[in-house]
Write a protein that binds this DNA or RNA. Structure first.
Length: 358
DNA sequence: TCTGGGGTCCTAGGACCC
DNA sequence: TCTGGGGTCCTAGGACCC
């Protein structure tokens, strides 16, 4: 019997801030971009539960979150703390959480900074596996003063959806027999891989829940979803046999930057490009790679029109100068007046390298 | 409302090869 | 009239995830 757990930290970044800054406890907290008095250009990374009561949520533009917080404050509700946060610190906490999970299971997949799958098949029974989950939650609370929600199910898909079912500080157990009925009433958006676009296009067909989606045959799903269709047919019935991925290597390394103000200042843009190439190259080395072969440059204009240009070298390069040179060559056409006759201002540039070699 | 930054995977057309 | 077919690589774009 396969038993898979999925651990998901509750409002992770905000919870770490709350823990480390006692003066913020119980207050609404938003971790993310600088709100710049409502003029900031980033998004919300994490909002804690009090901030969510104001309608603030992850991926919301920070300017909008700022306005929501203002509205609440004027109504006499507690003021919201906006914090930039520290990815470095979150990574350190994450490592310790992963170590706790590894103390209880040998096969662990660190799926993101605040999520992990772990294989509890060895426990032999659902009851014993559930005990281990409770134990993991308890130790995280004792050692890190943080809460996590865990889903326990017959595979990664069910575990993942179950961990989100009762948040925060929840434990949701779904048996193999219950899996299909557990999924059926849920919105299609709960299925990993179905995002906002697909949700919308399905809604136009009157498909809102997993139950609705089950009306499609594998062939119909293949037509709508391509290669993924037949796989999706299985998943919405609770069937999913993917193994845990315990080792991972990046396939690409890149950086991008949204400017504080849209610009066509060539001096500024070139300087940023150079700095980014430098950082990317440093990270390629730090990750243990020696060479790259493909360079990708991304440009986003003020109107959010986003384009990329890439070039693959005939042979791998280990040269940082070559990276700058190739990135510059790829960027040039975007700055050329003949290519950009409307003088569209530039909002973001990015550099990425692929086909990494050791 | 006005949209970050780090990634992965898929699609589709054209080039090229056998 | 008049156009194979399969595989792989490159390029650009897009959906998705956290």
């Amino acid at each position: 019997m396969r038993l898979i757990g999925h651990l998901d930290m509750d409002a992770f970044f905000a919870a770490v801030e709350e823990r480390d800054h006692p003066e913020l406890r119980g207050q609404p907290i938003v971790v993310g971009a600088d709100p710049a008095g409502g003029q900031g250009r980033g998004v919300v990374a994490t909002a804690n539960y009090p901030a969510r009561k104001y309608g603030i949520h992850s991926a919301m533009p920070i300017s909008q979150a700022w306005k929501a917080a203002e509205v609440a404050r004027r109504r006499g509700r507690p003021a919201t703390a906006f914090v930039r946060g520290s990815h470095r610190r979150y990574s350190e906490v994450s490592e310790r959480i992963m170590a706790i999970v590894r103390r209880h299971a040998q096969v662990v997949e660190a799926a993101s900074i605040d999520e992990a799958y772990f294989d509890l098949s060895f426990a032999g029974s659902l009851a014993r596996a559930a005990d281990i989950c409770r134990q993991i939650k308890l130790i995280i609370k004792e050692e890190e003063q943080l809460t996590a929600s865990i889903g326990l199910g017959p595979n990664k898909l069910i575990a993942k959806i179950a961990s989100d079912f009762q948040k925060p500080d929840g434990l949701t157990v779904v048996t193999a027999e219950e899996a299909e009925n557990f999924l059926a009433p849920l919105p299609v958006r709960k299925i990993p891989g179905i995002g906002p676009k697909t949700e919308k296009s399905l809604a136009r067909l009157g498909i809102k829940t997993v139950r609705d989606l089950k009306r499609f045959s594998p062939e119909q799903l293949q037509e709508r979803f391509g290669k993924w269709g037949p796989e999706l047919y299985e998943r919405i019935r609770g069937r999913h046999e993917s193994p845990l991925v315990t080792e991972w290597e990046p396939k690409s390394i890149g950086e991008q930057e949204t400017f504080g103000t849209d610009t066509l200042d060539l001096n500024f843009i070139f300087t940023r490009l150079w700095v980014m190439c430098h950082e990317v190259f440093k990270r390629v080395k730090a990750e243990g790679f020696l060479t790259y072969r493909t360079v990708v440059v991304t440009v986003r204009c003020a109107d959010f029109d986003t384009k990329s240009r890439s070039h693959t070298l005939p042979t791998p390069s280990d040269s940082p100068r070559r990276l700058r040179f190739e990135a510059m060559k790829l960027l040039m056409p975007f700055l050329d007046q003949r290519e950009n006759p409307k003088h569209k201002l530039i909002r973001l540039i990015g550099v990425r390298v692929e086909k990494l070699g050791k």
